[in-house]
């Protein structure tokens, strides 16, 4: 509808609605066997020799994999630069296993004191407003513990934000599972 400024001159943000079970049609056509649209973001944001892979499963409160999610990632480049240098992409959960997988670069530090991270959004049926979490890296444990941004997060919850190395090879691969609710619930942010 047409918007008129509120009394204080500010408009109200358009409310969110669930992305629903057919989010793939508009955001990831390749996941339902169609050609992606030209330049549509996909699961590979970077394909250099030093690329990293992050894979995982999103679990619901009953411990079942979420099989219809679309996830987005956004991180700084290897030098810690954002904006036009940032890396963005999208992946979807496998319809059978719930596994998502994407490839990007290990981000550098944006500034002194901040641990390298990738911002991670989850859209799915049953999720009314996308969930926003962060992926930190196992090898940066000390930086994560010192990061002032994470001061207010209890150590046990902080652990839910750390992707674990799953190989010993030259190309780094990480595991990042998400628990939407319950005992090991992942930390979600309101940024």
């Amino acid at each position: 509808m047409t918007r008129e400024p509120q009394k204080d001159g500010r408009l109200k943000e358009t409310p969110s609605q669930t992305a629903g079970p057919y989010v793939h049609i508009g955001t990831a056509p390749q996941s339902i066997g169609r050609e992606p649209l030209p330049n549509q973001p996909g699961p590979v944001a970077y394909d250099g020799a030093d690329s990293i892979t992050i894979e995982g499963v999103i679990y619901d409160g009953a411990g079942e994999p979420v099989r219809d999610a679309m996830v987005e990632f956004w991180g700084a480049d290897a030098q810690g630069r954002t904006g036009e240098h940032g890396l963005f992409g999208r992946a979807t959960s496998d319809f059978k296993t719930g596994e998502f997988r994407f490839q990007t670069v290990k981000p550098g530090q944006m500034k002194e004191g901040l641990a390298p991270r990738i911002d991670f959004l989850i859209f799915a049926r049953g999720i009314n407003l996308h969930l926003h979490t962060r992926i930190y890296f196992q090898e940066d444990q000390a930086l994560v513990e010192a990061d002032p941004e994470l001061r207010r997060v209890a150590p046990k919850s902080r652990a839910t934000l750390i992707a674990q190395r799953i190989d010993g090879g030259a190309k780094a691969a990480y595991r990042f599972d998400v628990n939407l609710q319950g005992e090991n619930e992942t930390v979600f942010f309101d940024v």
Partner: peptide, 23 residues
């Protein structure tokens, strides 16, 4: 939504360059 809604409150950090820029 019942099994997909987090129970715990959201954490509100300061916004960083990563939040204030985008693709």
């Amino acid at each position: 939504s019942v099994l997909r809604a987090p129970f715990r409150p959201l954490v509100s950090p300061e916004q960083t360059e990563l939040d204030m820029t985008g693709p």
